[in-house]
């Protein structure tokens, strides 16, 4: 049992535990906080996989920006909790069965069909340098230039969409 493996198992347990916690917390705020923890643990995975840039992005964009946005909305709406009223009694057991099937299929695929046996060592020195970021950036701005530009348009549209959706329209047709 190497240090790597022990660290991996630790982080994996945290990630799974926080995911389950998010799933079962009655309060939406708790769920959001659990999710933040989960994102952070995934960011640690990224670091372990030698992707420090992605890890940083994960922390800033997801754990920072997105989850803050979530919490903000939760606060705004004041809808942390819902009354316990189940209208779909059969939904829950069925969901569990399906999830189990999905999990089995995933494991089956990974272990039997894909059969990936590659080992991942600790990130060495070269990976952490700026060279990796540079070569990644070169790819981004050369090979993936078009998707990158499309992404910018996507963000623009999302911005406009969010503004339009949240804008109040009063009964007289005027704008508030």
């Amino acid at each position: 049992m190497t240090m790597d493996l022990m660290g991996f198992i630790l982080v994996a347990l945290i990630a799974i535990a926080t995911a389950i916690g998010m799933l079962y917390s009655r309060n939406a705020v708790y769920a959001a906080l659990f999710l933040v923890l989960n994102f952070v643990s995934v960011a640690i995975f990224y670091l372990m996989l030698g992707a420090p840039f992605v890890a940083l992005s994960q922390v800033t964009v997801y754990a920072g920006a997105i989850m803050v946005l979530f919490l903000f909305v939760i606060m705004l709406l004041g809808a942390e909790k819902l009354p316990p009223a189940e209208v779909l009694p059969w939904q829950r057991p069925l969901a569990f069965v399906l999830a189990l099937l999905l999990f089995i299929e995933g494991i089956y695929w990974l272990s039997v069909k894909a059969g990936t046996t590659a080992q991942i060592a600790s990130p060495d020195a070269t990976i952490g340098t700026m060279d990796a970021v540079r070569s990644m950036s070169m790819m981004l701005f050369q090979e993936y230039l078009l998707p990158f530009e499309v992404t910018s348009i996507l963000l623009l549209i999302a911005m406009i969409g969010a503004i339009v959706l949240t804008k109040r329209v009063d009964k007289k047709g005027g704008q508030a």
């Binding site: 779909l88 939904q91 399906l98 299929e105 089956y108 069909k113």
Partner: peptide
């Protein structure tokens, strides 16, 4: 068509599981 979005999601998952199962069995 009960109008519950979760129910629809469940249907989607049924499809995902089924298609994935099919693909795995025929792979």
């Amino acid at each position: 068509q009960n109008g519950f979005v979760r129910s629809y999601a469940l249907s989607v998952l049924v499809g995902v599981v089924a298609i994935l199962g099919y693909l795995l069995l025929n792979m």
